[in-house]
Computed example of a mutant assay.
Amino acid sequence: MVEKLGSRSRLNLAEQQALSALPHHVVEFGRDRYFSREGDRATHCSVLLSGFAMCHKITASGARQVISIHLTGDLLDVHDGTAETTTSNCQSLSSAAVALIPRTALVALARDMPAIAIALWADMGANASILAEWLLNLGRRDARARVAHLICEMQWRKDAVAHRKSPCATWPMTQEQLADATGLTAVHVNRTLQSLRREGLLAAEPRKLMILDWPAMCDAGDFTPEYLQFGNRGQSGGERTGAFA
């Protein structure tokens, strides 16, 4: 979390140490386990220490819409602000560890150290920017562009977290979960992936999906990374890899 907040807002050593010293306890989860459900009492802020997670909402009829995907270092629920209850469901996509920080402690620290408040504000601003891009993806792009865009986004974000181009980056999303993130059916996602493979943009292996032509994949997904607000972190050319379960 300290590194993630520091990537978008300057924090001095004392501020970094204060964040690291926040009271917390760590909980480990298996795959597909809920960290929290919509309507739970919002007493803690959750930081993803390892693994992957998603936040989603469910309609009265049981349909699910994934509204965000999270990587190591992400704050999962800071967007709930001072709400008394959580506003979405948070669930692991892989084995994961989460640090639970009492909300009162984080709020008090932000009041005492304005730079930390600004860093949290910047992080929420970046999340809002990503959400706006997701709305554009759902509302105005076709199926091919939606899927390609999300694959590009996740690969860029993973490279940014790792500070390098990863030769074998895992991405444990099922096609059903990808469908729920792009407003498609799992069958449509499967057909779209097959089409991208035939075009030579992707190569599939068991549990892996490799981007063979990064510029062409970005064109297919109408993807430019500025909205992620990572600066030049994560940027690289050539092949990139990810994985589907």
Rank of each mutant, 00 (worst) to 15 (best):
M1F: 12
M1C: 08
V2R: 07
E3C: 05
L5I: 02
R8C: 14
R8A: 09
R10Q: 11
L11K: 05
L13F: 08
E15S: 14
Q16H: 07
Q16P: 04
Q17K: 13
S20N: 09
A21V: 07
L22C: 07
V26F: 02
V27P: 01
V27Q: 11
E28N: 13
D32T: 12
F35Y: 07
F35E: 07
G39W: 00
D40N: 03
D40K: 02
A42Q: 03
C45A: 07
S46K: 01
V47F: 01
G51E: 03
A53E: 03
A53R: 01
A63H: 09
I69N: 06
I69C: 12
H70A: 15
D77H: 10
D77S: 11
D80L: 01
D80E: 13
G81S: 14
G81P: 03
T82R: 07
E84V: 06
T85G: 04
T87M: 05
S94M: 15
S95R: 04
A96M: 13
A99Q: 12
A99F: 10
A99T: 08
L100C: 06
I101H: 06
A108H: 04
A117W: 05
A119G: 02
L120K: 07
A122D: 11
D123E: 15
G125Y: 10
G125N: 15
A128W: 14
L131E: 14
A132L: 12
W134T: 09
L138E: 10
L138A: 11
A143W: 03
V147W: 00
L150W: 09
I151M: 01
C152E: 01
C152H: 00
M154H: 14
W156R: 11
K158H: 00
D159F: 09
H163S: 04
R164D: 03
T170G: 04
T170H: 10
W171E: 11
M173S: 14
Q177R: 04
T182S: 08
T182G: 01
L184E: 01
L184H: 07
L184R: 10
T185G: 08
T185V: 04
V189F: 04
V189R: 01
T192N: 00
L193I: 09
L193K: 05
S195R: 07
S195W: 05
R197K: 12
R197I: 01
R198G: 05
G200A: 00
A204W: 14
E205T: 12
E205S: 11
P206Q: 08
M210Q: 14
I211T: 00
I211H: 00
P215F: 02
D219N: 02
G221D: 03
T224D: 15
P225L: 07
P225N: 07
E226R: 02
E226W: 01
Y227N: 09
L228V: 10
R233H: 11
G234A: 05
Q235R: 08
G237M: 06
G237Q: 09
G238T: 03
E239A: 14
R240N: 06
G242T: 08
A243M: 14
A245H: 15
